[in-house]
Simulated assay, not measured.
Amino acid sequence: MRNDVVKPIPPIRSVVAPHSGDGDESALWREPPRESDPMRNRRERLLPLIAAIIAVVFGAMALIGMREKIVRVVPVATALYSAIGLKVNAAGLDLRGVTSKIVTEGGRKVLTVEGEIVNLRRSANRVPPMALAVRGADGRERYAWTAAAPKMQLAAGESVQFRARLAAPPADGADVQVRFASLGEAR
Rank of each mutant, 00 (worst) to 15 (best):
A27V: 13
R30L: 10
D24T: 11
V76M: 07
A79N: 00
V57H: 02
N41C: 14
P48G: 12
V56E: 02
S36W: 13
E35M: 12
L28K: 04
W29R: 09
S36K: 13
L28E: 02
V57W: 02
E25L: 09
R40A: 15
A62P: 01
E68C: 02
L28S: 05
I70G: 05
E25N: 08
K69P: 02
L47Q: 09
P48F: 07
A51S: 06
I53C: 12
A77Q: 03
I50M: 12
G23C: 10
R40W: 07
R30A: 10
R72K: 15
I64Q: 06
L47A: 10
D37K: 10
T78W: 00
P32S: 12
E44L: 15
A52T: 13
E31T: 03
R67M: 01
A51K: 06
P38A: 13
S82L: 00
V56R: 00
A51R: 04
P48C: 03
N41E: 14
A52V: 06
G59E: 03
A52H: 03
A51I: 05
I64W: 06
S82I: 01
G59T: 05
L49V: 14
L47H: 06
D24E: 14
R45M: 13
D37A: 08
L63D: 00
I84F: 04
R34N: 01
P38H: 08
L63T: 04
I53D: 05
R42C: 07
K69G: 06
L80K: 00
I70R: 02
L63V: 06
S36I: 14
S82C: 01
R40D: 02
S26A: 08
P32Y: 11
A83K: 07
A27S: 04
I64N: 03
T78C: 00
G65V: 08
R67H: 08
N41H: 11
D24S: 12
A27C: 09
M61G: 15
E31V: 00
A55Y: 03
S36A: 15
I50W: 07
P38M: 09
R43T: 09
R30P: 00
K69S: 12
E44G: 09
